[in-house]
Amino acid sequence: MRCPHPRGPLSTMVRGSLLRHAELDLDAFTRRADAVPRAHVLRDGDVQLALWTLYELHFRGFEDVSADLEWDPLLLGARGVLECLLERDLRRRTVERVQGALDADGPVAERIFDMVAADDGPRLAAYLHREATAAQVVEFLRERTVFHLKESDPQSLVLARLEGRAKTALAELLYDEFGGGRPERLHASMFADSLVGAGLESSYGAYLDEVSGTTLAVNNAMSLFALHRRLRGAAMGHFAAFEATSSVPSRKIAAGIRRVGLPEVVAAYFDEHVEADAVHEQLAVRTICATMVEEAPGLEADVFLGVATCLLLDGLAGGELLERWRASGSSDGPVEQVAS
């Protein structure tokens, strides 16, 4: 993957620095970042792409960027500025859900499941199941490439920060995510097979330039939580909510894929997640999160922050897709015709 095309001043400054065109001016970068309206942070393509690019230095990197830049102090400074924006916005938008969970009675695991059950976000999976056109299903897969082609990679960074039972459970979960010893069962590889089946590019980052700022924010939140030890509670709360919102939607998405006539291999990835995530949600909610809070009660609020963040961002990303399809339908006739 090559360094992505910039979407505005911040991602231009990051790209310029990564390609060694110009040293990053951290003061100018900070001023630019401070000027971003708070309400726009999560969907601002420039902010989110700049941060995604900086995070990617810690994952696969870019073929046209020197690996030495991963720990460059100026770039880490720029990353910190954007992380501050993101974390502040996530905390602001989730404060009510987090407080509600803190005030509720009952075991931590039940409160996490209750937060998930109470979520009334947009019904993206239901739409994909019953109504989406083949083109819309393919568009959904393209948006998801950013996440699924590096599935569970951010969470693997948290393993070294856990102990005892929570660590064992995360290792068990990750072993399954990473194929259980079989490379062809790596979830990221299975998704790549799905993409090929749907006629899409399966290379890492292939659709980076076209995915929305919100989609990048979904992924940035995972990296933010996973790369900071102080946020390990949020990382695992996020992971738990992600797993707990996967099994039933995956079943609907697989059915939708079959309904629009895409090849079986496209649905296979989602089939796998129906059963896998029914296991993973129990491990993540009960064994990882509940144990972490039992052993370190101070992590409770951050676990709920992670849960609420996952629900918030999934809702925003799903709502954005539905809105895009609705808008194209209303301006150009029925959605089915426009997207076919």
Binding site: F113, V116, A117, S247, V248, R251, E275, D277, A278, E281
Partner: peptide
Amino acid sequence: RQPWCDGTHKAVR
């Protein structure tokens, strides 16, 4: 997906 869990118990819950 018997005998495997598919998350449907949450609807029951």
